[in-house]
Computed example of a mutant assay.
Amino acid sequence: MHINTDTRPLVLIWELTQACDLACDHCRADAVPDRHPEELTTAEAKSLLDDAREFGEGQLVVFSGGDPLKRDDLIELVEYGTEIGLNVTLTPSGTASLTRDRIDRLADAGLRRMALSIDGPSPDAHDSFRGEAGSYTDTIAAARMATDAGIPLQVNSTVCQRTVGGLPGLRDVVRDLGAVLWSVFFLVPIGRGTALSPISPERSESVMEWLQTVADEEPFGVKTTEAPHYRRVGIQRREDEGTDATGSRSRSMGITAGDGFAFVSHTGELFPSGFLPKSAGNVREHSVVDLYRTADLFERLRDPDALTGKCGACPYRTVCGGSRSRAFATTGDPLGSDPLCPYVPEGYDGPLPADG
């Protein structure tokens, strides 16, 4: 099904809460143990889901956090979203709270997919990154229980200097768990993530090329998050092999912050992404549909010709567009160049991200 990202997002994420028992090194949310008193209430949450249904049939809504299991009404909200025709998925934290009973109840409520974060191929590597001993064991157990309950599994992994060496081992873990998708997130320096070191642009390019090979060889899908130049790398690879169809550079593909992607915070603010915390308004006061379609920030992010620097001059800008979140985090300008991408368009002689 083709979706016009000018009128609806492919992915709408709702951060149910910022409460979480983990203290992950890369946490965007600076998560805390206790729930915020101004979180959306159950009634407000159902109103948000009703509005999201107006995007169109089968709208994908991801329940995220923090740890969404911190909310007592989680099962009720999954069931409600499913009943009104939404495709509801979940990204819980890998803790002992993911019991078999809870997972079975989520399956019965209609959950369409569970995404679990695994950031190292061993307990030591994962647990040190997640800030909780036993997290790896709990996450692997939850992954197997989700599969047993008939819930398709997605594995999310963070790429930074600390974790990049573990990617080959993680590939094996993803395969062994029978996951349907490996979502590889490239660090954006926000929240606790500002204390971590990203990989270099050159290293990111080699990781992208390796991930293209993984996608060709494995039974699971591969996608990147906050690294849309993965699509540019794939197109260049097919062009080099002579297997790419004419016009691929001009096609619109994938999603970026504000263009096919939107994020509702725990207090109802609508952001282009959780990693681009610039509000377009609050869903308590306005329909999420109206905000997504008409907010000036979102309209500008959906215009590839509004991009500046080398991203604005790039012939791949309609299929990539660069990470708007990383551009905002590093320059303060959501339309600026993505510093993680090493590609320089032919003939471009303007400033590079490292030059400001």
Rank of each mutant, 00 (worst) to 15 (best):
A149H: 12
D50Q: 02
A115N: 15
D290C: 01
A143S: 13
D34I: 11
P92R: 05
P334K: 09
E38I: 03
H286C: 08
D216Q: 13
L74G: 11
P37L: 00
P198N: 10
L69M: 13
D25H: 14
L335V: 06
E38Y: 11
R8Y: 09
M1F: 11
R326L: 02
N282Y: 03
E241T: 04
D290W: 00
I75M: 04
G312K: 07
T147L: 08
C341N: 11
D296G: 05
D67E: 14
L181Y: 06
G247I: 02
L116N: 03
V233G: 04
F129A: 12
K310F: 00
A262W: 11
S47Y: 01
R203V: 08
G66H: 03
E44T: 05
A141M: 13
D216K: 14
T5S: 12
Q161M: 14
T41K: 02
D176G: 08
G66Q: 09
M145Q: 15
G169D: 10
S287I: 00
P345W: 02
G221Y: 13
V288H: 07
L270N: 02
T318I: 01
P189K: 10
D50F: 03
A29E: 14
G165D: 13
R35S: 09
S265Y: 00
V174D: 01
S64L: 06
T194A: 11
L196I: 08
E226T: 09
R238E: 08
V319I: 15
I255V: 12
N156S: 12
P33Y: 10
